[in-house]
Amino acid sequence: MSVTVRVDAAGVAHVEMCREKAGNAIDLAMATALLEAAGSCARTDGVRAVLLTGRGRSFCVGGDLREFAPLSGDRLAAHLTAVTDALHGALRVFAGLDAPLVAAVQGAVAGAGLGLAAAADLTLAASDATFVAAYTGIGYSPDAGVSWSLPRLVGPKRALDLLLTNRRITAPEAAEMGLVSRVVATDRLAGAAAETAAALARGATGALGATRRLVATGLSAGLDGHLDAEARHLADAAVSDEGREGVAAFLAKREPDWARRRARAGFVTEFK
């Protein structure tokens, strides 16, 4: 079992990487399982937030070098292509959801683990977490979107500092740079992350999805085009069920009822 998905009654999909004895290192099986898990979140009716975690002492130490090391030449290139195709496919699916993605990270966050942490909309880091790019230290270049996400989060100069020198940074440093949203005590990480995901699941999922896409595209879009996109999304939101419910609740001075659909309580899927 590489990855499990459990959708709770509030609509939070709990996606957990389960190779704790290997530091949740990503081998082909786990990359494929992450893609299947992301697809499960996309297909499951009522998923309103996704919480990504890694079981054990570390969130994810990156690629599984023990799997890669025996391979060479075309076999190695084909294997790495298969791993990255699956992992990048998972990132694309998560990015396309309306449901926001929350990551809770602890211990070692390295390589592709850094990419998963950076891909989340909100990343909570335990106070014991450390972050390192690691790629060039073994003669590799980045994957998992690291060369795309890291400059956007911390700026190109800081991104190159981390990517070229493989300097390991602490959770407070990562928060100061903008790599993580906030730092919490290690024994509070699970609870704080669950509370954050649950709060997002209680929100207006359509509006949250539009907002996360606007922020993502706004980093590269021109101002005129982005203003037009904002206007289109706002008009769509206003005429949606969520938009009408939000305005009605505001005028009636009550809490809005966003959750029109609920996920199945106790729904669990395991991916080998």
Rank of each mutant, 00 (worst) to 15 (best):
V5S: 08
V5D: 06
V5Q: 05
V5L: 14
R6G: 10
R6P: 09
R6V: 12
V7Y: 04
V7W: 03
D8V: 01
G11R: 00
V12Y: 05
A13W: 05
A13G: 10
H14W: 03
V15C: 06
V15P: 06
V15N: 07
E16Q: 15
A22V: 05
A22W: 12
G23N: 09
D27C: 02
D27R: 08
L28W: 02
L28I: 11
A29I: 00
A29K: 08
A33W: 07
L34E: 04
L35Y: 06
E36D: 15
A37D: 03
A37M: 01
A37N: 11
A38S: 04
S40A: 15
A42E: 15
R43V: 13
R43Y: 00
D45H: 09
G46W: 00
R48S: 08
R48G: 00
R48E: 01
A49W: 01
A49M: 05
A49N: 06
L51S: 12
R55H: 13
R55E: 12
R55Y: 08
G56K: 02
R57W: 11
R57A: 14
S58R: 07
C60I: 01
C60F: 07
G62N: 02
G62S: 06
D64H: 13
L65V: 13
R66E: 14
E67W: 05
E67K: 08
S72L: 04
S72T: 13
S72M: 07
S72I: 02
S72P: 08
D74L: 12
R75N: 15
A77G: 11
A77S: 11
A78I: 08
A78H: 11
H79Q: 15
H79K: 12
T81R: 14
D85R: 14
H88R: 14
H88W: 14
G89C: 10
A90D: 05
A95D: 11
L97W: 03
D98Y: 04
P100F: 08
L101T: 10
L101K: 03
V102F: 10
A103M: 01
A104V: 07
Q106T: 07
G107L: 00
G107Y: 02
G107V: 01
A110K: 10
G111A: 11
G111I: 08
G111D: 04
L116D: 05
A117Y: 03
A117N: 04
A118G: 09
A119M: 03
A119Q: 13
A119F: 07
D121T: 02
D121L: 06
T123Y: 03
A125S: 09
A126F: 03
D128F: 06
T130Y: 09
T130K: 08
F131N: 07
F131I: 00
F131V: 02
A133Q: 09
A134I: 14
G137F: 07
G137A: 12
G137R: 09
G139I: 07
Y140V: 11
S141E: 15
P142C: 12
A144D: 05
A144I: 04
A144L: 02
